[in-house]
Design a protein around this nucleic acid. Structure first.
Lengths: 334, 334
DNA sequence: TTGTACGCGTTATCAG
DNA sequence: CTGATAACGCGTACAA
């Protein structure tokens, strides 16, 4: 039952010609007799010949694969982004190798090194919550152009980046809470300050407060890690000490973690506290108490990031530029 | 900035010896002088030499990669299973190529063929909702032993399989509804009848009814596809026509789809209707009205499937046997 | 129009 | 102990 793949050599032997003739015929070379060509092509199809991509990779020094490093897969934002990445990549003949950093810098470094060793042609990465500098990433990349950061990107430096308009999304959500709901005491539970998304969303939140003449209360702003317990404790403490009228939580994972604690305080939350998440939770609209969400274009971010990477890999021109795409978020009410 | 990886040849040239010596030194061959060995190893570390896996693959006819085909990634059950697969595979030096069938037989066939072309060493697959026969899968596998089915497995035939104890899980859930809640009119919304999980869960459901002396009402059993609209319509129709006291919904995706419709009938559901899902939704406990769930050991299923596959790939013995693992589900109450 | 020879990076075999 | 050579599958410059 063991199947040995058909090689060029097999075909050549069967048809009594040389491997190069077969190779050229299959690549539709202009310098091959039409009859020979047809003969070869038909036979190849008959025996289901498929070129060995490993041999090609070795020859061309190109693996036709791109690496993806995300904090976790079991997360709606990232799995939707991966959808986009796969669609674009597969459409262009690439396959995708996915690694998870589990929010650890060490794991992330291992992943990047592992992928580099696997000869990936390019890298798509969303930084871990512990990452503050990207030396370990650039060190293992073929060139600065063969890396595209998405969502969680480095603040400084010129690189390919695909992000959501985090400032605007946060601004709109906060502004809505104030204007439409008349709420002024809004807690902001957000990711570690090292992440770009954290700062941008925080700025949006602050800008909306200021625009509406509300003083920023630093005690309402909490940075938490991605461990469930962190968010749980923080929410409980906030409720006990600051009695916020609303929560603005700044990511998928965080929203999940917070909500757990939050749902323990139903008597409190059912009355007035709206819960706003910067999330792609597919189920957010099913929660009770209701939350509304700043939805990120996760699929599009993945798709765009992959496109930029592949363009960059395949671009022959020497002078390249870094691309930077900012996609709009969408406020989703219940 | 373009980095060219260091090769054996580079090291050989730099150290003034032959590539074979360098190769043997790095592979700790017994027939190499300790001094030479140390010299080579130190230098290799200094220049960060990493063997080119593509060259190795070509030589060994082994890609050190395994393929995974799942219906979708943005699904908690599958993303958790992928976690398990990656952990096991990476631990054994393999990397994982993930493809999504999107519940389409055609896509699934393409995926399997694509993976075969990429020279994967083995395949892990959970069948699409449209798959009724696995000819297309076995056709492209190296051997029947290099395929492991998990969760959604073929009914007939001898193959490696990793499944949950679907019968028992469904039985326990149904039995609980009857015994603890005193409910007798339980609707069962389930996946297409072509899937193994569908039949097993249905059997469990029926067995529990029968054991408790309740007649099976076939009109309470609905097979639906994975399109959101299917479930939505089905739930509405069931509520209008049959007034079930409880819903037992048989998968992650289905539960999500049903719940949408379900939450529109809050006046109805808040009173009495419990909702039981065969799911791994990380958020199920946050829903309101509450549901309880038959939780599958998704991570463990992935991990076990990968282990069996790798064992099988690496096993040298000629006589092999098919492994079949059944893991326990867990009833999770609120 | 077709065949021969080489190289991609590595290891195994055979000489020395 | 170490070096030269073949082989894995493919494409292509060079020869015929």
């Amino acid at each position: 039952m063991e199947i040995k793949p058909v090689t060029l050599k097999d075909i050549a032997k069967a048809l009594g010609m040389s491997t190069s003739t077969v190779s050229r015929a299959l690549n539709d070379s202009y310098e091959i007799n039409e009859n020979t060509k047809k003969l070869v092509v038909d036979y190849a199809k008959k025996v289901d010949y498929r070129p060995n991509p490993i041999a090609l990779s070795l020859k061309e020094n190109k693996s036709w694969s791109i690496g993806v490093v995300v904090p976790e897969v079991a997360n709606n934002f990232f799995s939707m982004a991966i959808n986009g990445i796969e669609d674009e990549a597969n459409g262009c003949g690439y396959h995708v190798v996915i690694c998870q950093s589990h929010e650890s810098l060490e794991k992330e470094t291992q992943n990047v090194k592992h992928l580099a060793t696997r000869q990936i042609d390019g890298l798509l990465i969303s930084l871990s919550g512990k990452t503050t500098d990207i030396g370990h990433i650039m060190h293992y990349s073929r060139s600065p152009y063969s890396v595209v950061f998405f969502d969680r990107v480095p603040e400084a430096g010129n690189y390919h980046k695909v992000v959501a308009d985090n400032f605007k999304g946060a601004f709109e959500a906060t502004d809505y809470l104030i204007k439409a709901k008349g709420i002024t005491k809004i807690a902001h539970v957000t990711s570690p300050p090292s992440l770009s998304i954290t700062r941008e969303r925080l700025e949006g939140y602050k800008a909306a407060l200021e625009k509406n003449g509300i003083a920023v209360d630093e005690e309402l702003i909490k940075y938490v890690g991605f461990e469930p317990q962190d968010a749980y404790d923080t929410v409980n403490k906030l409720i006990a000490e600051k009695h916020p009228e609303a929560f603005f939580v700044a990511s998928d994972r965080l929203a999940l973690n917070c909500y757990e604690a939050f749902s323990k305080h139903l008597h409190y939350s059912e009355k007035t506290v709206p819960f706003v998440g910067f999330t792609n939770l597919s189920v957010s609209h099913l929660f009770n108490p209701k939350i509304f969400t700043v939805v990120q274009p996760a699929y599009e971010m993945g798709r765009n990031a992959a496109r930029i990477l592949i363009d960059s890999i395949e671009s022959k021109k020497k002078v390249k530029e870094f691309e930077m795409i900012t996609l709009e978020t969408k406020l989703k009410f219940e």
